[in-house]
Amino acid sequence: MQPDMVSKVKQHPKYRELLAKRTVFSWILTFIMCAIYYGFILLVAFRKDVLKTPIADNSIITVGIPLGVLVILSAFILTGIYTWRANGTFDELTREIKKDVQ
């Protein structure tokens, strides 16, 4: 990449906007995923009894089962949210930057 291109992109206001938005967004989503997963793992390690509680008085199904399925679903939903926003907002910003500098 040419040095003048580097400084052109760097000074583009949309580039700073893209950088700020995406960095914050990916870190927030990563944090949420880690919180959900390690939260679950800590329950497995420390509070097995919580996971073993039945979901209702007359039910054999324990809290752990829907919770585990929810962790799986949350991974899918989080990737969906990121893909949707990145393919929309972030790609739009990138397109505008490219149009201006090239």
Binding site: T30, M33, Y37, F40, G68, A75, L78, T79, Y82, T83
Partner: peptide
């Protein structure tokens, strides 16, 4: 679950 949760992190 452990095998799955790496994927979102790869994406982000």
């Amino acid at each position: 679950i452990g095998w799955l949760v790496g994927w979102p992190v790869i994406l982000f």
